Simulated assay, not measured.
Amino acid sequence: MNPINVYNGLQEFLGVGGVVLFVIMIVTFALWTFILERFAYYLFAHKPTKARLKNEWEARTDKTSWRAHAVRDEMVSQVKERTDTNVGIIKTLVALLPLLGLLGTVTGMIEVFDVMALSGSSNARLMAGGVFKATIPTMAGMTAALSGLYFSTVLPRWSTRETARFSDELQVG
């Protein structure tokens, strides 16, 4: 796999799909950056955070007062906040990608109508380029959205589960 061939192929693909395809590529990179950040958090930072907060709770002498319950709730909220970070952004980007694909469809169809207006006829060969240009961003937007759809549903469940587990680990009384 020659990097020059990959680069040329990517340039050709982006050229066929138009500007919208470049935007879809950038949004897809952002989506996967946020997904990988969540995995990095769960792999490297989640357990130490939970352990630190649990040790703080265990070091407390008072675990039954109103103030102790407020501290416990605040610790659970910290875990929930950290596990929920960027999940909303991931969901938003997954929802945005098909819409960007549809934008590419619209721009491609505008090109078809421009060709029809300039040529004064509905020549199928002239329209084929615009229709092809219209389908590429649609396909790319849907494919990119599908690549992140699984994680947009799994990550909130992980967050809820990990928050509940941490809440159960902090024993009151």
Rank of each mutant, 00 (worst) to 15 (best):
M1R: 04
N2A: 06
N2I: 01
P3F: 06
P3Y: 03
I4C: 01
V6Q: 11
Y7E: 09
Y7K: 09
Y7V: 07
Y7H: 07
N8K: 12
G9Q: 03
Q11G: 10
F13I: 02
F13Y: 11
V16L: 15
G17C: 10
V19T: 13
L21A: 14
F22N: 01
V23F: 15
V23I: 15
I24N: 07
V27Y: 03
T28E: 10
T28M: 12
T28K: 05
T28F: 14
A30M: 10
L31V: 04
W32T: 02
L36M: 11
E37H: 02
E37I: 00
R38M: 12
A40H: 07
A40V: 09
Y41Q: 06
F44R: 09
A45Q: 15
K47V: 09
K47W: 05
K47D: 13
T49D: 06
A51C: 01
R52F: 07
E56V: 00
A59W: 00
A59D: 13
T64L: 11
S65T: 05
W66T: 07
R67I: 07
H69P: 00
V71N: 04
R72F: 04
R72A: 04
M75D: 04
V76N: 09
S77N: 13
V79T: 05
K80L: 12
K80R: 15
R82E: 15
D84I: 00
D84L: 10
T85G: 08
T85A: 15
I89L: 14
I90W: 08
K91A: 15
K91E: 14
T92L: 15
T92F: 14
V94L: 08
V94F: 09
L96T: 11
L97E: 11
P98K: 11
G101I: 02
L102R: 02
G104P: 06
T105K: 04
T105Y: 05
I110G: 08
E111F: 02
F113T: 08
V115F: 04
M116S: 04
A117E: 09
G120E: 09
S121R: 05
S122L: 02
N123K: 03
N123D: 15
A124V: 13
R125Q: 14
L126M: 14
L126Q: 12
M127I: 03
M127L: 10
A128M: 11
A128H: 02
A128P: 03
G129K: 06
G129M: 01
K133I: 00
A134M: 03
T135N: 06
P137G: 10
T138E: 04
A140I: 00
T143A: 15
T143K: 01
S147R: 00
G148K: 09
Y150C: 08
Y150V: 13
T153I: 08
V154L: 14
V154E: 12
V154R: 15
L155E: 03
P156T: 03
R157L: 14
W158V: 12
W158I: 13
T160R: 13
T160H: 12
E162R: 10
T163D: 08
A164G: 05
A164C: 01
R165D: 15
F166H: 06
F166K: 03
S167F: 00
S167G: 13
D168H: 11
L170Y: 06
L170W: 05
V172A: 14
V172L: 14
G173R: 09
